[in-house]
Design a protein around this nucleic acid. Structure first.
Lengths: 338, 338
DNA sequence: TTGTACGCGTTATCAC
DNA sequence: GTGATAACGCGTACAA
């Protein structure tokens, strides 16, 4: 279309008075050539601003030196931190990262899969928004690593995730040990498999200490702003006569919303109700009172998954862990103080 | 490497008993063919999970149906909102968006430019981290749109940005009209061209109303956490004996840090000091007191730049605005109340 | 509806 | 040890 000016390897070869093979060798530092021709070629490349055509390179090598990251929403601290971490790793290793935002739309996830496949991506890291993966994700044998979310049928793909179950368990246990008797669980609208781990952690801890954790102790929010939904939900819940002196949330925003609701009801945090958020997002340090929360380590998650994918790309399939589960860390702030 | 299974158009042609040309036509809905052959071809594609090879397609057409977005840091609400907006636009138009994170590193920005060039991107949107663009950014005539930040030499590239100068001017004027006598300006460590617009807005408003706006009224933060740096800077500044009853910041985090510093000095917001943030990030609604701020509209910025780029890609160079400047909106909350 | 030249870089083979 | 020649990968588009 608009690329009359495009300079190809052939032009460089002519200008340097050598063959295209030699130019290729100089560029890739393969094969043998004299210092002299190296100079000539490099000068020609410099003078004419030649940039090699990756399309041609990918066509021949069936590899684009590109890796895809499919995620639900970059507009989220946790995911974007993961993305930054992965991007850094691959940049250092001379791979480009293609970030694909699915907006939590399974259709879009599938489309991006095909596109990555089609552009000969060398590997894919997926934070899936699907409960169940389809078979035949990729026509070729592209290495795939599942990150954070683990669809029911993992299809033997390696997984890197954080132990949210354990994190929530610890948080719940902490509240119990601080004397809370009526701890409820607030969870997002998201597909069950995402939150089921977290709910399990809550239920396990409650049962372990002889507290009930039935359906009425669990508030499932509607889709929309978790901050606002949590606020109205907690107000409704307490107005109905339910007792609450502890809340475990599946996000910091839910917790902040819940605290706003409690304030409207003249309940004090942490004196009357203790609250745990999830993810240690910036706002947990800024809200009043400051929010205790559960930290997953997005940087570590990103790095681990990137390393794993790189090993797969390099064909070292042996000795690779099929599941890498990183611990969460409790961060106690004012919202759960005694 | 690892793609023994890769199915090409040739395989499909053989299996359907037609030529590759016909397969290509069926896929692209070009040319004419019978319903019958269409069925055969589609079935073969389905059965063998054929995915067309974009590398070959790009090689031939010199276009990848891919657009690049180069930005300083996805791990930032403002930029990631822009990215989401742009991604949606291109997804609807059947283009893939390649998001490139430069980490504010000019070297990396250049590398990504080359890579996009090399992979035959059809267009590029850049939020540059460079004061000055180099010439010869692209070997080919790739359409480029500058977004948000406007390097000194814009090289006649179209620009989409928000009128931060006017936004800051309005905020400053608002504080003046509320009776503030000693308004200072806190700006980030960033390269001057990014903040110079904003500083201009502050200086203009101050001068307009006869207030001094000299170097000592401007605090330039060091690199690092703006939240923490703003806190310590404002404490130092006031301890030195400087009077302050109004603060204009170039980010919400700076404002929140500044408010923390004021609290340490037992100064009350908004009674003793009124504070304006910038960007209307989530935390401005959550902090105490809630923060007045200046909103740019990332979604609109993204959409406008995407539309503009699309027009350029479609070769409609006429009648396109070389500068698109969107207004900012003041959002007044508790930190500037009377 | 098909045959086929083309786009461009890679790499194995061959020549000096 | 240096370098050239040419086949190859795969989809597109024009001529037939």
């Amino acid at each position: 279309m608009n690329n009359k000016k495009s300079v190809s390897i052939i032009d460089i070869a002519k200008l340097a008075g050598v063959s295209t093979a030699t130019v290729s060798h100089v560029i890739n530092k393969t094969g043998r050539y004299s210092k002299e021709t190296e100079e000539k070629v490099k000068e020609a490349i410099e003078r004419y601003g030649y940039v090699s055509n990756n399309a041609a390179r990918s066509l021949k090598s069936s590899s684009s030196h590109t890796v895809g990251l499919i995620l639900p929403n970059i507009n989220n601290d946790f995911f974007s931190s993961i993305a930054v971490s992965i991007e850094q790793y691959f940049d250092e290793n001379n791979y480009a990262l293609f970030i694909c935002n699915t907006d939590n739309d399974p259709q879009k996830e599938r489309r991006y899969f095909h596109r990555l496949d089609s552009m000969r991506a060398d590997g894919i890291i997926v934070i899936s928004c699907q409960n169940m993966l389809e078979s035949g994700l990729s026509t070729r044998n592209v290495p795939i690593v599942l990150l954070d979310r683990t669809p029911i049928n993992n299809m033997d793909l390696p997984i890197v995730a954080s132990d949210a179950r354990k994190g929530i368990y610890d948080a719940t246990e902490t509240l119990i040990k601080k004397g809370c008797q009526n701890i409820i669980f607030i969870s997002s609208y998201l597909a069950t498999y995402v939150v089921s781990n977290r709910k399990d952690g809550y239920v396990e801890a409650m049962n372990r200490y002889g507290f009930p954790a039935s359906r009425q102790h669990i508030i499932q929010l509607d889709k929309g702003s978790s901050l606002i939904n949590a606020e109205t939900s907690i107000v409704d819940y307490i107005k109905k006569g339910n007792k609450v002196d502890g809340i475990i949330c599946t996000s910091d925003n839910q917790a902040i919303g819940a605290m706003a609701g409690l304030k409207r009801l003249d309940l004090k945090v942490p004196e009357d109700v203790k609250v745990f958020g999830f993810d240690n997002q910036l706002q947990s340090r800024i809200c009043t009172p400051t929010l205790s929360t559960i930290e997953r380590d997005p940087t570590a998650l990103g790095k681990r998954s990137a390393e794993l994918l790189m090993s797969l790309i390099r064909n070292k399939k042996e000795d690779l862990p099929s599941r890498t589960i990183l611990n969460c860390r409790l961060i106690e702030r004012h919202s759960t103080a005694n």
